[in-house]
Amino acid sequence: MNPRPRTAAIACAVLLALGGAAYAFVNEAISMALEAAVPYVEQGFEVREDNWSGEVEPGKPLLIRHQLFRGNEYWFWAGTSWPGATIKVDIFDNEGNSVGLESFAKNSFAGVRALPQKTATYFIRVVASYEKTGKGMTKAERGANEPVDGVGEFTGVLDWGLVYGYR
């Protein structure tokens, strides 16, 4: 299955699961992050519509500031849609101490949970990595289709997306 229709199908399903909200366009990295959020929606987490996304060089850490409130529980979920790329996410307080209570990183998506000890600005670190070149990729990682005229070739940057939920 070509990864683009697959991701679009997942995005539609996840958006339905999150209450039928619809974006005017599909951001594939955000779709991956929302995919990771699905099991937690079932646990009562309300996933925000607003989010962060962009492109980044592999291995270059990103730092995102965000206001959290003591008394709420948060999950942050990150995703990348590039085949073969991986992503990690961590959370730190304003002194740089890690405050993630649990986390996971599974290929294209990752998550971290936090229970803020104080109401303040926190810092979420996202790192997207990709070590393989086009020749090193498996057929599955290429999305089963052979690259055509540069399509599917790695261009030096990875897409990334970050969403969060609270309860």
């Binding site: 962009g54 990103l62 995102i64 500031r65």
Partner: peptide, 18 residues
Amino acid sequence: PERIDLTNFPGELVDKVV
């Protein structure tokens, strides 16, 4: 537990505020 130096972060600070 990990600790990072926020005053000398070796990456990019994302501008967008949610």
